[in-house]
């Protein structure tokens, strides 16, 4: 991987090999800045981790990069297409798993994937074949006709991920894909994503499980309080220490809690 993946100055050119280029994205809610000028370069074919503490602006950044939330400033390009100038063109290339949103959960799992496929304009035969494959890959075939509302949390994540894959996107933007997923399903999801990256796709995931990011991703960016603290390959960012230690050091958390002496039984 020779492509640059460092924090880039605003206004720098867009490298041709980038799956996602973010330049100076900013968003405030009610006067409070949630994201304060983040620029990122996600190389094509990378498995990119976006880490940060709760409230760091990960979800806001990804929402702006995927066309869900209009930024106050800045641009986002997906494979060279501006998300906010040509939203339909950019969305065709992207598979998105937003965090904390509802699904159309009165549909069965099979219907939900079919729905996503048809919304993307695929024809009926393609949708039917891909739905079958996705249900198979995510081990959901037995529950294909159960309503999504009756799924467990892990199954719900998997069906949402399956729905975001149905149009064969070239870039996957996944917000907290492993939250409340059991280890077996997590391994299942990881295998599918790794496979996808090996076949030339690009994945960007947000997470605050450092261990997972260190094992799974090849690139990582650390954000906190709406700003980018570090970005690069995982090895560059973590240096000699583990990613978790480096992260705590960067974000500046405080050490073992001395204050809760009454909690020691």
């Amino acid at each position: 991987m020779t492509l640059p993946s460092y924090p880039v100055p605003e206004g720098a050119g867009y490298p041709a090999g980038s799956a996602l280029s973010i330049r100076g994205l900013a968003k405030s809610f009610g006067g409070k800045p949630a994201v304060n000028g983040i620029s990122l370069e996600v190389p094509t074919g990378s498995f990119y981790g976006l880490v940060g503490p709760n409230g760091a602006g990960k979800t806001t950044t990804l929402s702006m990069a995927t066309g869900l939330l209009r930024p106050d400033a800045g641009t986002a390009l997906v494979l060279g297409i501006d998300v906010w100038q040509d939203p339909l063109g950019a969305k065709r290339l992207m598979g998105v798993l937003p965090d904390g949103v509802r699904l159309f959960d009165r549909l069965s799992g099979e219907q939900l994937i079919t729905y996503a496929g048809l919304l993307h304009g695929l024809d009926r035969a393609t949708v039917a074949a891909r739905t079958r494959d996705l249900l198979e890959a995510f081990d959901l075939t037995a529950d294909a006709r159960t309503l999504v509302v009756d799924y467990s949390a892990g199954m719900t994540k998997k069906i949402a991920l399956a729905a975001s894959l149905v149009h064969a996107p070239r870039l996957l933007v996944l917000d907290e894909p492993f939250e409340s997923v059991d280890p077996v399903s997590a391994a299942n999801i990881r295998a599918i994503l790794t496979d996808y990256v090996h076949s030339g796709g690009t994945v960007i995931v947000s997470s605050h499980v450092m261990d997972l990011v260190q094992r799974m991703c090849d690139h990582v960016a650390v954000v906190a309080q709406g700003q980018l603290l570090a970005a690069g390959t995982v090895d560059e960012v973590r240096g000699e220490s583990t990613l978790e230690d480096r992260f705590v050091q960067l974000v500046g958390g405080h050490g073992p809690a001395e204050g809760l002496s009454w909690l020691r039984t």
Partner: peptide, 15 residues
């Protein structure tokens, strides 16, 4: 009534 499930229409680029 869709609530945030509407995000699917948005991310799928439905006209």
């Amino acid at each position: 009534y869709d609530s945030t499930a509407f995000s699917l229409h948005l991310t799928a680029g439905v006209r």
